[in-house]
Design a protein around this nucleic acid. Structure first.
Length: 779
RNA sequence: GGCCGGAUGGCGGAAUUGGUAUACGCGUUCGACUUAAAAUCGAAUGGAGCAAUCCGUACGGGUUCAAGUCCCGUUCCGGCUACCA
């Protein structure tokens, strides 16, 4: 008898799939389509991780399931290749990121092929290839043309030692990750995408998506819409009517001469509040340290104190702000007039008010708001209990969002260059579309220089560009990697199109994506793709407004000890080791589907891997144990078809595998007919495609998904459960026909000796539940 | 602090949504095969008890003929978020 040798079988089938381009698809008009994708991976040097395997296998199970059902199924693959690790490696070793990236892709591809995924390899994409990022730049230009890509001064983390801007994740405990110097916030000009333009639509359409509630809620909270009002508080000696009131000893004239902004003259302060009805309780005003008109408001006496407070606040790291919630603040010396009470109320500066939200100014109602009360108590400010007034009396209605515009410029080398150049006056100009892509120049040294700009600034020749006959200097910032992944799903439809980012007809056929699977980026990426989709739909480039119909958010796989796998802990399980140890890819795949519900975290259990291997081994052994005529397994066979089909529809992959195990155990006991085995192989194929293909070949069968026949699922004999006072006391066998007649059921129940013992003293109440095949007697 | 999930044998997890708690797998024990081991196959396996029975889904109440499932309260664990006015 031959033995199950997974590595041999897998090599054979992988070769066949490769040579026949088995999963290459194109648009077929009269066939229903299905498109599935995982969140494409960053191909790190470490190669495939067991987490990738779980993610990719979920996609593959669904892919093969729908293929076997006869749909035209596209399952593409790609690589998200821009990013920090490659750049850091380049800084350390001087190796070009381009080179390292291609090596990593090569390795990743090889490993993915060892897992037998039904990928259309002709559609592979790589975000750092010029053929791809040309179109990322094109997308940027479309947003720029419509005013949705813009520049703005904003406060950024800045390392004074390295003289560079740092991303949030590069700040560790308030210190620069490279040199350890304390970082501070610095005002700098940065590029943004105006995602806030779509805030309402992004929020309102969430409910229409077949996404996990968890993710939907996270996105809703992130967008954070709240309805309130803007209320203007006149400052200092001027009341709303212009009537003079007592001043706080401050010379008004000096502040009103130099306004560079109409809104921040210092004549008034506009606050945002969700509770305009509590205005009578507003006993002071609080401004954010970065409040734009602050200089016009502070009196000379208070100037130094406020300046010091502001400087300290900007130095405060995120961590410090989190750890220390003790209220701090300083008085500006000025007063505002509460328009409702006409009272003079002091204006303070405190970092518990955020510059980026609302107007950066609040009216403090310590009687109603916990934070305001804390502040009032600490600084001995008045707390006035108050009755409510009409919401619209003193303000104008205003909706605000927690979501900010998306900061996209990065001072990094290894990213997609922003296709912009500056004239001599420093005005930005888009690079003409026919000059795309703006290639990433080669440099010798990848370390950012003293200018605080990315290493792109070192490519002196590259910097110069002529547009419409005018000499200009290129932008040296690159795009956030999330920009590259905001449109890749559409590139999959026509990955080699040289004329367009995506082909209209192909998009119309394949998309939106039917299933998207991943375990990360709940808000960032998954919000950005939705934003771009709506934008490009508005420009007429996309025929839908939501890019992803269904989202599956899978859990992580942890180390056997339950902790996160990490190199430093030395608890990483390498999926290629599992395969090469002799278990094979089918065992690995099936195990990761069996490990637990797909959306829950799970700990790797090496011994359970063996259990799945034993199961596949038994499947294989059944081939030699055929018992063609003697057995009739119609009941369990049909039951299993139904269970596995329905479980896959519900993404209950773990119980689908369990059902297959039960089926195999039964066949092992009583023997299997050819039909039993064909069905087994077909149902097994999404999980263990190599073994199933081998079985089907030997059985001479195709892989068409089997259907169950309901007639085998209703049996003639049923078991009726008898409870006494809700406790199980007896089980009776009776014919299904008798079950229809309550009288007959009760007769049978009461003639049972065991039951009789319990009902000697009479029955108070009897309940018969036909659906549950259950009788409950209350005695 | 806020929001959202969880808590079921020695372990990972099932349970048609109120109706036989612990499917399937791991582990453990016993048996078969073997000179032996591994592999494989078979049987048993929530706890207590000789037994009839009793107790069991984090804890305390409640609703119901019937609760892992519904309601109220408590504890613990995980995720996200973090002074958003």
């Amino acid at each position: 008898m031959d033995r199950y040798e997974p590595l041999k079988i897998e090599e054979k089938w992988q070769k066949i799939w490769e040579e026949t381009e088995a999963f290459k698809v194109s648009e077929i008009k009269d066939k229903p389509k299905m498109m599935l994708a995982e969140m494409f991976p960053y191909p790190s040097g470490a190669g495939l991780h067991v987490g990738h395997v779980r993610n990719f296998t979920i996609v593959d199970v669904l892919t093969r399931f729908y293929m076997q059902q006869g749909l035209n199924v596209l399952r593409p693959f790609g690589y998200d290749t821009f990013g920090l690790p490659a750049e850091n490696y380049a800084i350390k070793t001087g190796t070009a990121p381009q080179k390292v990236t291609l090596e990593n892709i090569e390795n990743f591809r090889k490993q993915a092929k060892r897992l037998g995924y039904a990928i259309d390899w002709s559609r592979e994409i790589n975000t750092s290839s010029p053929e791809y990022y040309k179109w990322t730049q094109w997308c940027f230009l479309q947003l720029y043309k419509k005013g949705l890509a813009y520049q703005k001064e904003s406060y950024q983390w800045w390392c004074p030692e390295d003289k560079t801007v740092l991303a949030n994740e590069q700040v560790e405990n308030g210190k620069c990750w490279r040199c350890g110097h304390e970082v501070e916030k610095k005002k700098m000009k940065q590029w943004f995408f105006k995602i806030t333009e779509y805030a309402d639509e992004l929020l309102d359409e969430i409910d229409s998506l077949e996404w996990p509630e968890k993710i939907k809620t996270m996105q809703k909270n992130w967008i954070g819409r709240s309805a309130g009002a803007l209320i203007e508080f006149p400052v200092n000696s001027r009341a709303a009517s212009g009537r003079p009131v007592a001043t706080g000893g401050r010379r008004l004239s000096s502040c009103c001469r130099t306004p560079d902004s109409l809104e921040f003259t210092g004549n008034s302060i506009t606050v945002f509040t969700t509770r305009p009805d509590t205005i009578k309780g507003a006993t002071f005003i609080v401004l954010a340290p970065e409040y734009q008109g602050l200089d016009f408001i502070v009196t000379d006496d208070c100037k130094d104190a406020v300046a010091k407070y502001k400087a300290d606040a900007l130095k405060k790291s995120e961590v410090e702000r989190q750890e220390n919630k003790e209220k701090t603040g300083v008085f500006t010396g000025s007063y505002a007039i509460n328009p409702a009470t006409k009272e003079k109320i002091p204006i303070w500066v405190a970092d518990y008010v955020l510059a980026g939200y609302g107007t950066g100014a609040i009216m403090a109602v310590p009687a109603m708001d916990e934070r305001d009360r804390e502040f009032a108590e600490k600084f001995d400010l008045p707390i006035v209990e108050t009755e409510l007034v009409d919401r619209d009396l003193y303000g104008t209605p205003k909706v605000t969002y927690k979501m900010r515009d998306w900061l996209i410029s990065r001072q990094r080398y290894w990213g997609c260059p922003i296709p912009i150049a500056y004239d001599k006056e420093g005005n930005p100009h888009p690079i003409p579309e026919d000059q795309l892509p703006v290639m990433i120049p080669e440099v010798k040294d990848y370390q950012p220089d003293d200018s605080g700009r990315s290493a792109l600034a070192k490519a002196k020749d590259w910097l110069k560009v002529t547009i419409d006959g005018e000499e200009m200097t290129r932008e040296t910032d690159t795009l956030d990697g999330y920009a590259c992944s905001s449109w890749y799903l559409w590139r999959y439809a026509s990955p080699h199109d040289k004329e367009h980012a995506w082909n209209e007809a192909a998009i119309k056929y394949w998309e939106p994506v039917d299933y998207y699977v991943g375990g990360d980026h709940a808000v960032a990426h998954l919000l950005y793709v939705r934003f771009w989709c709506k934008f490009f739909a508005d420009q007429g480039y996309l025929p839908f407004r939501e890019p992803i119909k269904r989202l599956l958010y899978n859990g992580y796989i942890n180390a056997p000890d339950g902790k996160k796998m990490s190199k430093s802990k030395g608890n990483v399980i390498d999926p290629l080791d599992v395969i090469n140890d002799g278990y094979g890819a089918d065992t690995l795949r099936t195990y990761e589907m069996f490990i637990g519900p797909y959306d829950m975290d799970a700990a790797w259990d090496p011994r359970s891997v063996g259990g799945v291997y034993r199961f596949l081994n038994r499947c294989y052994n059944l081939l030699a144990m055929q018992n063609p005529d003697k057995v009739d397994n119609s009941i369990i066979r049909n039951k299993t078809i139904k269970k596995v089909t329905e479980d896959i529809h519900k993404y209950n992959f773990n119980t689908a595998v369990a059902a297959l195990m039960e089926y195999v155990n039964e066949l092992y006991k009583v023997g299997a007919s050819e039909e039993d085995l064909v069905v087994l192989a077909k149902l097994l194929k999404p999980f263990a495609p190599h073994l199933a293909s081998e079985m089907l070949e030997r059985l001479g069968a195709d892989d068409e998904w089997p259907k169950w026949d309901e007639k085998y699922l209703v049996s003639d004999i049923v078991t009726v459960v008898v409870q006494i006072n809700g406790k199980l006391r007896a089980k009776l066998e009776m014919s299904a026909d008798d079950l229809e007649d309550e009288k007959k059921v009760m007769e049978a129940v009461l003639s049972d000796k065991k039951v009789q013992k319990y009902v000697e003293n009479g029955i108070k109440k009897q309940i018969f539940v036909k659906k549950a095949k259950l009788v409950n007697l209350v005695v």
